[in-house]
């Protein structure tokens, strides 16, 4: 059973914005292409959260959240592309926050200035369950870069679809 009402589909064009933004980020930073597999709607039983994750709260023209989640091994492999030899947990966590922030912020080129992003909230570890807002679909964009898997997770709803329940769920999620 899906975690969200699949009739409220995220526009394909919006998904493409995040696919392109993710590809751009990895190519620009590492000169290595990232492959984005076909996005899918997360089922409640899907465990998609990896070792380091960052969530950006979205408000304005859309409401919801953008997650980026990756394995420790992947971020350890990525940090040297920022010139880093330090692979402390603090910097690994900071790195996923910066990835989520950059991809979300770059999306404003197409989604406009009213696609408003929060500062990233970062967490470590693989919780059994992360609760997403229930009345919008949760799209997972699987990313493969340099032999590592990570994911961008989008739970977004257009302003005209918003309900008080959705807003409340988002606020709980990012607080």
């Amino acid at each position: 059973m899906a975690t969200a009402n699949a009739t409220v589909a995220m526009p394909e064009d919006d998904l493409k914005v995040f696919v392109k933004g993710t590809e751009h980020f990895f190519l620009h930073i590492t000169q290595l292409s990232a492959e984005i597999s076909t996005p899918f709607i997360k089922e409640q039983s899907d465990r998609v959260i990896l070792d380091f994750s960052a969530v950006i709260g979205i408000s304005g023209s859309q409401r919801g959240c953008v997650y980026y989640t990756a394995s420790r091994e992947m971020i350890v492999d990525l940090l040297p592309h920022f010139g880093e030899s330090d692979v402390s947990d603090d910097l690994l966590a900071d790195c996923v926050g910066e990835i989520a922030n950059t991809i979300s912020g770059n999306a404003r080129e197409f989604l406009g200035p009213n696609f408003m992003i929060s500062v990233p909230v970062v967490f470590c570890g693989r919780p059994d369950d992360v609760r997403f807002p229930q009345d919008a679909p949760v799209f997972v964009l699987p990313i493969e870069w340099n032999g590592h898997r990570s994911s961008l997770i989008l739970c977004l709803k257009k302003d005209d679809d918003l309900t008080p329940e959705f807003n409340e769920a988002v606020l709980k999620e990012v607080s």
């Binding site: 922030n101 950059t102 979300s104 912020g105 404003r108 080129e109 406009g112």
Partner: peptide
């Protein structure tokens, strides 16, 4: 130095 890519910003 920002990720906000809209021209308005």
């Amino acid at each position: 130095i920002s990720a906000l890519a809209d021209k308005g910003t």
